[in-house]
Design a protein around this nucleic acid. Structure first.
Length: 505
RNA sequence: GCCCCCAUCGUCUAGUGGCCUAGGAUACCGGCUUUUCAUGCCGGCGACAGGGGUUCGAAUCCCCUUGGGGGUGCCA
Protein backbone atom coordinates (compact mmCIF):
# COMPACT_ATOMS: atom_id res chain seq x y z
CA UNK A 1 0.00 0.00 0.00
CA UNK A 2 1.07 3.49 -0.77
CA UNK A 3 1.26 5.52 2.42
CA UNK A 4 -1.16 8.39 2.32
CA UNK A 5 -1.61 11.40 4.48
CA UNK A 6 -3.79 10.83 7.48
CA UNK A 7 -7.20 12.37 7.50
CA UNK A 8 -6.70 14.10 10.79
CA UNK A 9 -4.81 17.01 9.28
CA UNK A 10 -6.79 19.84 7.68
CA UNK A 11 -7.60 19.25 4.05
CA UNK A 12 -5.61 21.26 1.55
CA UNK A 13 -6.15 21.17 -2.19
CA UNK A 14 -4.76 23.21 -5.05
CA UNK A 15 -5.41 24.18 -8.60
CA UNK A 16 -2.21 24.62 -10.57
CA UNK A 17 -2.69 26.08 -14.02
CA UNK A 18 0.11 27.04 -16.33
CA UNK A 19 -0.24 30.55 -17.71
CA UNK A 20 -0.89 29.79 -21.35
CA UNK A 21 -4.14 31.70 -21.88
CA UNK A 22 -7.62 31.98 -20.47
CA UNK A 23 -9.02 29.32 -18.16
CA UNK A 24 -10.21 26.36 -20.21
CA UNK A 25 -13.63 24.93 -19.46
CA UNK A 26 -12.03 21.60 -18.52
CA UNK A 27 -9.73 23.42 -16.15
CA UNK A 28 -12.75 25.19 -14.72
CA UNK A 29 -14.33 21.87 -13.85
CA UNK A 30 -11.09 20.76 -12.16
CA UNK A 31 -10.90 23.96 -10.11
CA UNK A 32 -14.55 23.66 -9.22
CA UNK A 33 -14.19 20.15 -7.79
CA UNK A 34 -11.09 21.14 -5.84
CA UNK A 35 -12.83 24.23 -4.55
CA UNK A 36 -15.97 22.30 -3.65
CA UNK A 37 -13.97 19.72 -1.74
CA UNK A 38 -12.13 22.43 0.18
CA UNK A 39 -15.31 24.30 1.07
CA UNK A 40 -17.15 21.13 1.94
CA UNK A 41 -14.39 19.97 4.27
CA UNK A 42 -13.62 23.38 5.69
CA UNK A 43 -10.18 23.08 4.14
CA UNK A 44 -7.93 25.35 2.16
CA UNK A 45 -7.97 25.98 -1.56
CA UNK A 46 -4.58 26.98 -2.97
CA UNK A 47 -3.90 28.54 -6.33
CA UNK A 48 -0.42 27.92 -7.72
CA UNK A 49 0.93 29.12 -11.04
CA UNK A 50 3.03 26.55 -12.88
CA UNK A 51 5.13 28.81 -15.04
CA UNK A 52 8.11 26.58 -15.66
CA UNK A 53 7.88 26.54 -19.44
CA UNK A 54 9.26 29.86 -20.59
CA UNK A 55 8.49 29.09 -24.22
CA UNK A 56 4.77 28.66 -23.68
CA UNK A 57 4.23 31.56 -21.31
CA UNK A 58 1.49 33.89 -22.54
CA UNK A 59 1.51 37.54 -21.46
CA UNK A 60 -1.28 38.55 -19.07
CA UNK A 61 -2.67 35.06 -18.79
CA UNK A 62 -2.26 34.94 -15.02
CA UNK A 63 -4.49 37.99 -14.71
CA UNK A 64 -6.95 36.41 -17.11
CA UNK A 65 -7.11 33.19 -15.15
CA UNK A 66 -7.59 35.06 -11.89
CA UNK A 67 -10.39 37.07 -13.45
CA UNK A 68 -12.09 33.96 -14.78
CA UNK A 69 -11.95 32.34 -11.35
CA UNK A 70 -13.41 35.42 -9.73
CA UNK A 71 -16.17 35.57 -12.31
CA UNK A 72 -17.03 31.96 -11.53
CA UNK A 73 -17.09 32.81 -7.84
CA UNK A 74 -14.30 30.37 -6.98
CA UNK A 75 -12.03 32.32 -4.67
CA UNK A 76 -8.73 30.99 -3.45
CA UNK A 77 -7.39 31.06 0.09
CA UNK A 78 -3.70 31.13 -0.76
CA UNK A 79 -2.02 32.13 -3.98
CA UNK A 80 -1.39 35.09 -6.27
CA UNK A 81 -2.34 38.51 -4.87
CA UNK A 82 -3.17 36.95 -1.50
CA UNK A 83 0.08 35.24 -0.65
CA UNK A 84 0.00 32.76 2.19
CA UNK A 85 2.22 30.73 4.48
CA UNK A 86 3.58 28.48 1.72
CA UNK A 87 4.56 31.04 -0.90
CA UNK A 88 5.71 32.10 -3.29
CA UNK A 89 2.90 30.64 -5.39
CA UNK A 90 4.62 31.12 -8.72
CA UNK A 91 6.95 28.25 -9.55
CA UNK A 92 9.29 30.55 -11.42
CA UNK A 93 10.01 32.19 -8.05
CA UNK A 94 10.81 28.90 -6.36
CA UNK A 95 13.84 27.80 -8.33
CA UNK A 96 16.12 27.80 -5.27
CA UNK A 97 13.80 25.40 -3.54
CA UNK A 98 13.79 22.96 -6.43
CA UNK A 99 17.56 23.15 -6.69
CA UNK A 100 17.91 22.32 -3.03
CA UNK A 101 15.89 19.15 -3.43
CA UNK A 102 17.66 18.35 -6.66
CA UNK A 103 20.98 18.43 -4.81
CA UNK A 104 19.55 16.11 -2.23
CA UNK A 105 18.52 13.61 -4.90
CA UNK A 106 21.85 13.89 -6.66
CA UNK A 107 23.72 13.28 -3.44
CA UNK A 108 21.58 10.37 -2.36
CA UNK A 109 22.03 8.76 -5.76
CA UNK A 110 18.35 9.06 -6.73
CA UNK A 111 19.17 11.33 -9.64
CA UNK A 112 21.92 11.75 -12.21
CA UNK A 113 23.04 13.97 -15.03
CA UNK A 114 22.02 12.54 -18.39
CA UNK A 115 24.29 13.59 -21.22
CA UNK A 116 22.28 12.71 -24.34
CA UNK A 117 21.43 15.56 -26.65
CA UNK A 118 17.85 16.23 -27.71
CA UNK A 119 18.83 15.14 -31.22
CA UNK A 120 20.15 11.81 -29.96
CA UNK A 121 16.96 11.15 -28.05
CA UNK A 122 14.87 12.12 -31.01
CA UNK A 123 16.72 9.62 -33.19
CA UNK A 124 16.35 6.87 -30.61
CA UNK A 125 12.65 7.64 -30.33
CA UNK A 126 12.22 7.53 -34.09
CA UNK A 127 13.86 4.12 -34.46
CA UNK A 128 11.99 2.89 -31.43
CA UNK A 129 8.71 3.86 -33.02
CA UNK A 130 9.62 2.01 -36.18
CA UNK A 131 10.96 -1.18 -34.66
CA UNK A 132 9.29 -2.00 -31.37
CA UNK A 133 6.50 0.53 -31.62
CA UNK A 134 7.72 2.51 -28.65
CA UNK A 135 10.71 4.02 -26.92
CA UNK A 136 11.85 3.79 -23.37
CA UNK A 137 14.84 5.69 -22.04
CA UNK A 138 17.61 3.31 -20.99
CA UNK A 139 19.66 4.33 -18.03
CA UNK A 140 23.38 4.52 -18.95
CA UNK A 141 25.55 2.02 -17.11
CA UNK A 142 27.34 3.41 -15.30
CA UNK A 143 25.50 6.70 -15.04
CA UNK A 144 27.57 9.83 -15.64
CA UNK A 145 29.20 11.20 -12.51
CA UNK A 146 28.30 14.56 -11.05
CA UNK A 147 31.70 15.82 -12.18
CA UNK A 148 30.99 14.76 -15.77
CA UNK A 149 27.64 16.48 -15.67
CA UNK A 150 29.05 19.66 -14.25
CA UNK A 151 31.89 19.60 -16.75
CA UNK A 152 29.44 19.27 -19.64
CA UNK A 153 27.45 22.20 -18.33
CA UNK A 154 30.60 24.23 -17.84
CA UNK A 155 31.33 23.54 -21.49
CA UNK A 156 28.06 25.26 -22.32
CA UNK A 157 25.95 22.18 -22.98
CA UNK A 158 22.31 21.97 -21.90
CA UNK A 159 22.34 19.00 -19.56
CA UNK A 160 19.30 17.50 -17.89
CA UNK A 161 19.00 15.69 -14.59
CA UNK A 162 17.03 12.48 -14.53
CA UNK A 163 15.41 10.56 -11.73
CA UNK A 164 16.40 6.95 -11.10
CA UNK A 165 13.06 5.23 -11.35
CA UNK A 166 12.97 2.21 -9.05
CA UNK A 167 12.67 -1.16 -10.78
CA UNK A 168 9.37 -2.13 -9.26
CA UNK A 169 5.68 -1.97 -10.05
CA UNK A 170 3.95 1.03 -8.54
CA UNK A 171 0.43 0.89 -7.27
CA UNK A 172 -1.41 4.18 -7.35
CA UNK A 173 -4.29 4.39 -4.97
CA UNK A 174 -6.99 6.61 -6.43
CA UNK A 175 -10.24 7.29 -4.63
CA UNK A 176 -12.18 7.44 -7.87
CA UNK A 177 -10.51 4.71 -9.90
CA UNK A 178 -9.36 2.40 -7.13
CA UNK A 179 -5.91 0.83 -7.19
CA UNK A 180 -4.06 1.13 -10.45
CA UNK A 181 -0.91 -0.96 -10.90
CA UNK A 182 1.72 0.28 -13.30
CA UNK A 183 4.30 -2.32 -14.37
CA UNK A 184 7.94 -1.41 -13.73
CA UNK A 185 8.94 -2.00 -17.34
CA UNK A 186 6.63 0.84 -18.40
CA UNK A 187 8.40 3.30 -16.14
CA UNK A 188 11.55 5.13 -17.15
CA UNK A 189 14.03 7.62 -15.74
CA UNK A 190 12.20 10.86 -16.36
CA UNK A 191 13.70 14.35 -16.42
CA UNK A 192 13.67 16.37 -13.20
CA UNK A 193 15.53 19.41 -14.39
CA UNK A 194 15.50 20.68 -17.95
CA UNK A 195 18.48 21.94 -19.87
CA UNK A 196 17.51 25.52 -19.11
CA UNK A 197 17.71 24.86 -15.39
CA UNK A 198 13.96 24.92 -14.81
CA UNK A 199 12.30 21.97 -13.10
CA UNK A 200 9.94 19.77 -15.07
CA UNK A 201 6.29 19.66 -14.18
CA UNK A 202 6.75 16.36 -12.30
CA UNK A 203 9.50 17.63 -10.08
CA UNK A 204 8.08 21.06 -9.29
CA UNK A 205 4.65 19.61 -8.71
CA UNK A 206 5.83 17.00 -6.23
CA UNK A 207 8.04 19.41 -4.32
CA UNK A 208 5.37 22.09 -4.15
CA UNK A 209 2.55 19.78 -3.21
CA UNK A 210 4.64 18.51 -0.32
CA UNK A 211 5.85 21.93 0.81
CA UNK A 212 2.38 23.42 0.50
CA UNK A 213 1.10 20.46 2.52
CA UNK A 214 -1.41 19.48 -0.13
CA UNK A 215 -3.45 16.55 1.14
CA UNK A 216 -5.68 15.81 -1.85
CA UNK A 217 -4.82 16.02 -5.52
CA UNK A 218 -7.84 16.24 -7.82
CA UNK A 219 -6.75 16.52 -11.42
CA UNK A 220 -7.69 15.37 -14.90
CA UNK A 221 -7.39 11.74 -15.86
CA UNK A 222 -4.70 12.68 -18.36
CA UNK A 223 -2.38 12.84 -15.36
CA UNK A 224 -2.98 9.27 -14.23
CA UNK A 225 0.15 7.95 -15.92
CA UNK A 226 2.21 10.70 -14.28
CA UNK A 227 1.21 9.59 -10.84
CA UNK A 228 3.63 6.64 -10.47
CA UNK A 229 6.44 9.05 -11.26
CA UNK A 230 5.22 11.37 -8.57
CA UNK A 231 4.77 8.58 -6.06
CA UNK A 232 8.31 7.30 -6.67
CA UNK A 233 9.68 10.81 -6.30
CA UNK A 234 7.81 11.32 -3.06
CA UNK A 235 9.34 8.18 -1.65
CA UNK A 236 12.84 9.22 -2.67
CA UNK A 237 12.35 12.63 -1.09
CA UNK A 238 10.69 11.31 2.03
CA UNK A 239 7.45 13.15 1.25
CA UNK A 240 4.01 11.81 2.09
CA UNK A 241 1.82 10.77 -0.81
CA UNK A 242 -1.37 12.80 -1.04
CA UNK A 243 -4.74 11.28 -1.74
CA UNK A 244 -5.25 11.12 -5.49
CA UNK A 245 -8.48 11.52 -7.42
CA UNK A 246 -8.31 11.54 -11.20
CA UNK A 247 -11.32 13.21 -12.73
CA UNK A 248 -12.99 12.09 -15.95
CA UNK A 249 -12.37 14.31 -18.94
CA UNK A 250 -14.77 16.61 -20.83
CA UNK A 251 -15.11 16.40 -24.61
CA UNK A 252 -17.06 18.04 -27.39
CA UNK A 253 -20.38 16.51 -28.34
CA UNK A 254 -18.70 14.66 -31.21
CA UNK A 255 -16.12 13.15 -28.89
CA UNK A 256 -13.23 15.37 -29.94
CA UNK A 257 -11.22 17.39 -27.48
CA UNK A 258 -12.48 20.84 -26.59
CA UNK A 259 -9.58 22.89 -27.82
CA UNK A 260 -8.81 26.47 -28.68
CA UNK A 261 -8.29 25.26 -32.22
CA UNK A 262 -12.02 24.54 -32.51
CA UNK A 263 -12.53 28.28 -32.57
CA UNK A 264 -10.12 28.82 -35.44
CA UNK A 265 -11.59 25.93 -37.38
CA UNK A 266 -15.14 27.26 -37.02
CA UNK A 267 -14.00 30.73 -38.03
CA UNK A 268 -12.34 29.27 -41.11
CA UNK A 269 -15.63 27.64 -42.06
CA UNK A 270 -17.41 30.94 -41.58
CA UNK A 271 -19.24 29.67 -38.51
CA UNK A 272 -19.56 31.23 -35.08
CA UNK A 273 -16.70 30.02 -32.89
CA UNK A 274 -17.76 27.69 -30.07
CA UNK A 275 -17.13 28.70 -26.47
CA UNK A 276 -14.08 26.87 -25.12
CA UNK A 277 -12.62 29.05 -22.39
CA UNK A 278 -14.53 30.33 -19.40
CA UNK A 279 -14.08 33.82 -20.79
CA UNK A 280 -15.87 32.81 -23.99
CA UNK A 281 -18.98 31.93 -22.01
CA UNK A 282 -18.79 35.22 -20.16
CA UNK A 283 -18.61 37.17 -23.40
CA UNK A 284 -21.37 35.02 -24.87
CA UNK A 285 -23.71 36.20 -22.13
CA UNK A 286 -23.99 33.20 -19.83
CA UNK A 287 -24.49 33.49 -16.10
CA UNK A 288 -21.70 32.02 -13.99
CA UNK A 289 -24.40 30.46 -11.82
CA UNK A 290 -25.58 28.42 -14.78
CA UNK A 291 -22.13 27.53 -16.05
CA UNK A 292 -20.91 26.39 -12.66
CA UNK A 293 -24.07 24.41 -12.02
CA UNK A 294 -23.80 22.77 -15.41
CA UNK A 295 -20.15 21.75 -15.19
CA UNK A 296 -20.60 20.52 -11.64
CA UNK A 297 -22.90 17.90 -13.13
CA UNK A 298 -20.27 16.71 -15.58
CA UNK A 299 -18.85 13.73 -13.76
CA UNK A 300 -20.70 14.35 -10.54
CA UNK A 301 -24.29 14.02 -9.45
CA UNK A 302 -26.00 14.67 -6.15
CA UNK A 303 -28.53 11.92 -6.84
CA UNK A 304 -32.24 12.07 -6.08
CA UNK A 305 -32.87 13.55 -9.52
CA UNK A 306 -31.59 16.92 -8.39
CA UNK A 307 -30.01 19.25 -10.91
CA UNK A 308 -30.61 22.90 -10.26
CA UNK A 309 -28.25 23.81 -7.46
CA UNK A 310 -26.69 27.01 -6.21
CA UNK A 311 -22.98 26.95 -5.42
CA UNK A 312 -23.82 26.82 -1.72
CA UNK A 313 -26.14 23.87 -2.21
CA UNK A 314 -23.49 22.13 -4.28
CA UNK A 315 -20.94 22.66 -1.52
CA UNK A 316 -23.32 21.12 0.98
CA UNK A 317 -23.95 18.10 -1.25
CA UNK A 318 -20.52 17.56 -2.76
CA UNK A 319 -18.58 14.38 -2.18
CA UNK A 320 -15.87 12.63 -4.19
CA UNK A 321 -17.71 9.37 -3.63
CA UNK A 322 -20.27 10.59 -6.11
CA UNK A 323 -17.77 11.51 -8.80
CA UNK A 324 -18.00 9.11 -11.72
CA UNK A 325 -15.33 7.47 -13.85
CA UNK A 326 -16.84 8.09 -17.25
CA UNK A 327 -15.76 10.86 -19.58
CA UNK A 328 -18.47 13.36 -20.37
CA UNK A 329 -19.49 15.34 -23.42
CA UNK A 330 -20.24 19.01 -23.22
CA UNK A 331 -23.78 19.57 -24.47
CA UNK A 332 -24.24 23.28 -25.17
CA UNK A 333 -28.00 22.83 -25.67
CA UNK A 334 -28.35 21.69 -22.13
CA UNK A 335 -26.19 24.54 -20.87
CA UNK A 336 -28.48 26.91 -22.75
CA UNK A 337 -31.48 25.41 -20.99
CA UNK A 338 -29.73 25.80 -17.65
CA UNK A 339 -28.92 29.42 -18.40
CA UNK A 340 -32.50 30.16 -19.41
CA UNK A 341 -33.65 28.75 -16.13
CA UNK A 342 -31.01 30.51 -14.05
CA UNK A 343 -31.95 33.84 -15.60
CA UNK A 344 -35.35 33.43 -13.98
CA UNK A 345 -34.12 32.17 -10.62
CA UNK A 346 -31.48 34.73 -9.70
CA UNK A 347 -32.70 37.94 -8.07
CA UNK A 348 -33.35 40.99 -10.29
CA UNK A 349 -30.41 42.92 -8.79
CA UNK A 350 -28.11 39.98 -9.42
CA UNK A 351 -29.37 39.63 -12.98
CA UNK A 352 -28.78 43.32 -13.54
CA UNK A 353 -25.25 43.00 -12.22
CA UNK A 354 -24.61 40.12 -14.60
CA UNK A 355 -26.02 42.08 -17.51
CA UNK A 356 -23.73 44.99 -16.71
CA UNK A 357 -20.78 42.63 -16.71
CA UNK A 358 -21.85 41.26 -20.07
CA UNK A 359 -22.22 44.76 -21.50
CA UNK A 360 -18.74 45.59 -20.24
CA UNK A 361 -16.96 42.58 -21.73
CA UNK A 362 -18.88 42.16 -24.98
CA UNK A 363 -17.69 44.55 -27.69
CA UNK A 364 -20.76 44.10 -29.91
CA UNK A 365 -23.44 45.68 -27.76
CA UNK A 366 -25.01 49.09 -28.55
CA UNK A 367 -22.73 51.57 -26.81
CA UNK A 368 -25.69 53.56 -25.49
CA UNK A 369 -26.69 50.48 -23.56
CA UNK A 370 -23.45 50.52 -21.58
CA UNK A 371 -24.18 54.05 -20.42
CA UNK A 372 -27.85 53.40 -19.77
CA UNK A 373 -29.26 54.17 -16.32
CA UNK A 374 -29.59 51.33 -13.84
CA UNK A 375 -33.37 51.74 -13.71
CA UNK A 376 -33.64 51.56 -17.48
CA UNK A 377 -31.66 48.32 -17.68
CA UNK A 378 -33.66 46.90 -14.81
CA UNK A 379 -36.84 47.69 -16.75
CA UNK A 380 -35.41 46.09 -19.87
CA UNK A 381 -34.70 42.91 -17.96
CA UNK A 382 -38.14 42.96 -16.41
CA UNK A 383 -39.84 43.06 -19.80
CA UNK A 384 -37.45 40.67 -21.55
CA UNK A 385 -38.16 37.49 -19.64
CA UNK A 386 -37.69 34.22 -21.42
CA UNK A 387 -34.25 34.94 -22.88
CA UNK A 388 -31.64 32.24 -23.06
CA UNK A 389 -28.48 34.33 -22.98
CA UNK A 390 -27.92 38.09 -22.80
CA UNK A 391 -27.54 38.53 -26.56
CA UNK A 392 -31.23 37.60 -26.74
CA UNK A 393 -31.95 40.69 -24.65
CA UNK A 394 -30.01 42.83 -27.10
CA UNK A 395 -31.85 41.23 -29.99
CA UNK A 396 -35.17 41.93 -28.34
CA UNK A 397 -34.61 45.35 -26.83
CA UNK A 398 -31.45 46.72 -28.41
CA UNK A 399 -33.49 49.06 -30.64
CA UNK A 400 -34.33 51.09 -27.55
CA UNK A 401 -30.71 52.14 -27.43
CA UNK A 402 -30.09 53.27 -30.97
CA UNK A 403 -30.94 56.72 -32.34
CA UNK A 404 -34.38 57.05 -33.92
CA UNK A 405 -32.88 57.75 -37.32
CA UNK A 406 -30.68 54.66 -37.11
CA UNK A 407 -33.54 52.15 -37.02
CA UNK A 408 -33.26 49.79 -39.96
CA UNK A 409 -36.45 48.20 -41.19
CA UNK A 410 -36.30 44.49 -41.77
CA UNK A 411 -37.56 43.75 -45.29
CA UNK A 412 -39.56 40.71 -44.36
CA UNK A 413 -41.16 42.42 -41.39
CA UNK A 414 -42.14 45.46 -43.48
CA UNK A 415 -43.66 43.31 -46.19
CA UNK A 416 -45.58 41.07 -43.87
CA UNK A 417 -46.81 43.63 -41.35
CA UNK A 418 -46.90 47.02 -43.09
CA UNK A 419 -46.98 46.74 -46.86
CA UNK A 420 -49.21 43.70 -47.24
CA UNK A 421 -52.83 44.23 -48.41
CA UNK A 422 -52.11 47.58 -50.03
CA UNK A 423 -50.33 49.03 -47.05
CA UNK A 424 -52.79 47.96 -44.42
CA UNK A 425 -50.22 48.31 -41.68
CA UNK A 426 -49.22 51.80 -42.73
CA UNK A 427 -52.88 52.77 -42.71
CA UNK A 428 -53.19 51.55 -39.13
CA UNK A 429 -50.21 53.66 -38.13
CA UNK A 430 -51.61 56.74 -39.83
CA UNK A 431 -54.86 56.40 -37.96
CA UNK A 432 -53.15 55.68 -34.67
CA UNK A 433 -50.70 58.56 -34.80
CA UNK A 434 -53.00 61.45 -33.78
CA UNK A 435 -54.65 59.41 -31.05
CA UNK A 436 -51.27 58.45 -29.64
CA UNK A 437 -50.15 62.04 -29.81
CA UNK A 438 -53.16 62.93 -27.66
CA UNK A 439 -52.62 60.15 -25.15
CA UNK A 440 -51.92 61.67 -21.75
CA UNK A 441 -51.03 58.57 -19.71
CA UNK A 442 -47.92 57.12 -21.36
CA UNK A 443 -47.27 54.50 -18.72
CA UNK A 444 -47.29 50.87 -19.76
CA UNK A 445 -50.71 50.49 -18.21
CA UNK A 446 -51.94 53.64 -19.91
CA UNK A 447 -50.71 52.54 -23.32
CA UNK A 448 -52.15 49.10 -22.83
CA UNK A 449 -55.57 50.47 -21.88
CA UNK A 450 -55.50 52.75 -24.90
CA UNK A 451 -54.62 49.93 -27.27
CA UNK A 452 -57.28 47.66 -25.78
CA UNK A 453 -59.93 50.30 -26.25
CA UNK A 454 -58.84 50.97 -29.78
CA UNK A 455 -59.12 47.27 -30.51
CA UNK A 456 -62.59 46.86 -29.15
CA UNK A 457 -63.75 50.09 -30.79
CA UNK A 458 -62.61 48.86 -34.18
CA UNK A 459 -63.41 45.25 -33.38
CA UNK A 460 -59.94 43.93 -34.34
CA UNK A 461 -57.36 41.65 -32.76
CA UNK A 462 -54.61 43.37 -30.83
CA UNK A 463 -52.08 41.90 -33.22
CA UNK A 464 -53.45 44.01 -36.04
CA UNK A 465 -52.36 47.09 -34.18
CA UNK A 466 -49.43 45.85 -32.15
CA UNK A 467 -47.46 44.42 -35.03
CA UNK A 468 -47.39 47.58 -37.18
CA UNK A 469 -46.39 49.56 -34.10
CA UNK A 470 -43.68 47.04 -33.30
CA UNK A 471 -42.17 47.22 -36.75
CA UNK A 472 -42.41 51.01 -36.80
CA UNK A 473 -40.52 51.50 -33.55
CA UNK A 474 -38.10 48.55 -33.67
CA UNK A 475 -37.74 47.75 -37.36
CA UNK A 476 -38.49 44.08 -36.64
CA UNK A 477 -41.27 41.84 -35.42
CA UNK A 478 -39.34 41.12 -32.26
CA UNK A 479 -39.72 43.23 -29.14
CA UNK A 480 -41.03 43.09 -25.59
CA UNK A 481 -44.81 43.35 -25.24
CA UNK A 482 -46.01 46.37 -27.16
CA UNK A 483 -47.19 48.52 -24.27
CA UNK A 484 -43.94 47.98 -22.34
CA UNK A 485 -42.02 48.78 -25.47
CA UNK A 486 -43.79 52.08 -26.09
CA UNK A 487 -43.61 53.06 -22.43
CA UNK A 488 -39.89 52.35 -22.36
CA UNK A 489 -39.31 54.26 -25.59
CA UNK A 490 -41.26 57.26 -24.40
CA UNK A 491 -43.93 59.23 -26.17
CA UNK A 492 -41.71 61.58 -28.13
CA UNK A 493 -39.47 58.89 -29.59
CA UNK A 494 -42.43 56.67 -30.35
CA UNK A 495 -44.12 59.42 -32.33
CA UNK A 496 -40.86 60.30 -34.08
CA UNK A 497 -40.28 56.71 -35.10
CA UNK A 498 -43.81 56.22 -36.38
CA UNK A 499 -43.56 59.41 -38.44
CA UNK A 500 -40.22 58.34 -39.82
CA UNK A 501 -41.61 54.93 -40.68
CA UNK A 502 -44.54 56.53 -42.50
CA UNK A 503 -42.18 58.77 -44.44
CA UNK A 504 -40.24 55.76 -45.67
CA UNK A 505 -43.23 54.49 -47.65
C1' G B 1 3.07 -1.54 -30.87
C1' C B 2 3.06 -1.48 -25.44
C1' C B 3 0.72 0.18 -20.76
C1' C B 4 -3.49 2.26 -18.16
C1' C B 5 -8.66 3.91 -17.62
C1' C B 6 -13.77 3.73 -19.07
C1' A B 7 -18.73 1.64 -21.05
C1' U B 8 -27.21 2.93 -18.92
C1' C B 9 -31.78 6.91 -23.73
C1' G B 10 -28.46 11.36 -29.20
C1' U B 11 -26.20 14.04 -24.68
C1' C B 12 -25.57 14.70 -18.95
C1' U B 13 -26.89 11.20 -15.46
C1' A B 14 -29.87 8.05 -11.23
C1' G B 15 -29.07 3.00 -10.24
C1' U B 16 -24.02 -0.32 -5.85
C1' G B 17 -28.16 -8.39 -6.67
C1' G B 18 -34.67 -8.50 -6.11
C1' C B 19 -37.97 -1.56 -5.08
C1' C B 20 -36.23 -1.68 -12.83
C1' U B 21 -42.23 -3.58 -17.50
C1' A B 22 -34.72 1.14 -15.73
C1' G B 23 -36.00 7.20 -12.90
C1' G B 24 -34.66 12.59 -13.86
C1' A B 25 -32.66 16.42 -17.13
C1' U B 26 -31.65 18.05 -22.06
C1' A B 27 -32.61 17.41 -27.16
C1' C B 28 -36.49 15.80 -30.51
C1' C B 29 -41.94 15.14 -31.75
C1' G B 30 -47.13 16.53 -30.54
C1' G B 31 -50.61 19.67 -27.81
C1' C B 32 -51.81 24.01 -24.64
C1' U B 33 -50.73 29.26 -23.18
C1' U B 34 -49.42 33.82 -26.06
C1' U B 35 -50.23 40.91 -29.54
C1' U B 36 -44.36 39.49 -31.84
C1' C B 37 -39.88 36.76 -30.38
C1' A B 38 -39.12 33.83 -26.52
C1' U B 39 -40.50 31.61 -21.98
C1' G B 40 -43.82 28.39 -19.46
C1' C B 41 -47.14 23.99 -18.92
C1' C B 42 -48.84 18.95 -20.44
C1' G B 43 -47.98 14.45 -23.21
C1' G B 44 -44.92 11.19 -26.30
C1' C B 45 -40.41 8.87 -28.45
C1' G B 46 -35.96 7.01 -26.53
C1' A B 47 -30.79 3.21 -23.20
C1' C B 48 -28.48 -1.22 -19.63
C1' A B 49 -22.39 -2.28 -26.35
C1' G B 50 -22.05 -7.89 -27.63
C1' G B 51 -21.03 -12.82 -25.78
C1' G B 52 -20.05 -16.12 -21.93
C1' G B 53 -20.28 -17.27 -16.78
C1' U B 54 -21.70 -16.75 -11.03
C1' U B 55 -26.67 -16.70 -8.66
C1' C B 56 -33.20 -18.77 -7.05
C1' G B 57 -32.55 -13.83 -9.26
C1' A B 58 -28.02 -9.30 -12.68
C1' A B 59 -27.92 -2.74 -15.49
C1' U B 60 -25.59 -4.04 -10.89
C1' C B 61 -20.32 -9.41 -9.52
C1' C B 62 -16.34 -12.19 -12.85
C1' C B 63 -14.12 -13.25 -17.84
C1' C B 64 -13.65 -12.37 -23.11
C1' U B 65 -14.72 -9.36 -27.40
C1' U B 66 -15.85 -4.72 -29.33
C1' G B 67 -15.92 0.45 -28.87
C1' G B 68 -14.17 5.09 -26.66
C1' G B 69 -10.38 7.80 -23.93
C1' G B 70 -5.47 8.61 -21.88
C1' G B 71 -0.09 7.82 -21.60
C1' U B 72 4.29 6.54 -24.18
C1' G B 73 8.21 14.92 -24.32
C1' C B 74 14.06 18.67 -21.74
C1' C B 75 4.53 20.35 -22.34
C1' A B 76 1.78 20.82 -18.25
Amino acid sequence: MVPTTTNTEPLRVRFAPSPTGYLHIGGARTVLFNWLLARRAGGTFILRIEDTDQTRHVEDSVQKILEDLRWLGLHWDEGPELGGPCGPYFQSERLDTYNRYLQQLLESGHAYYALETQEQLQALRATGERTTGGFRYRRPDPVPTVEEGLAARAAGRQIVVRFKMPEEDIVVSDIILGEVRLPAEQLEDFVLQKGDGFPTYHFACVVDDALMRVTHVLRGQEHLMNTPKHVALQRALGFPTPVYAHLPVIFNLDGSKMSKRDKEKALARGEAPPEIDVHDFRVAGYLPEALVNFISLLGWSPGEDREKLTLDETVALFSIDRVGKTNARFDREKLLAFNTDWATRVTPPRLLEALRDFLAVNPDVPSAMREAAEETLAEVLRVCTGFRTFPDVIRKAGFLFVPDEAIVYDDKAVKKVLAKNEGEGYAVLRKLLPALADLADWSAAGVEAFLQHTCSDRNVQLGKIAQPLRVAVSGTTISPSIHETLALLGKARTITRIERCLQSV
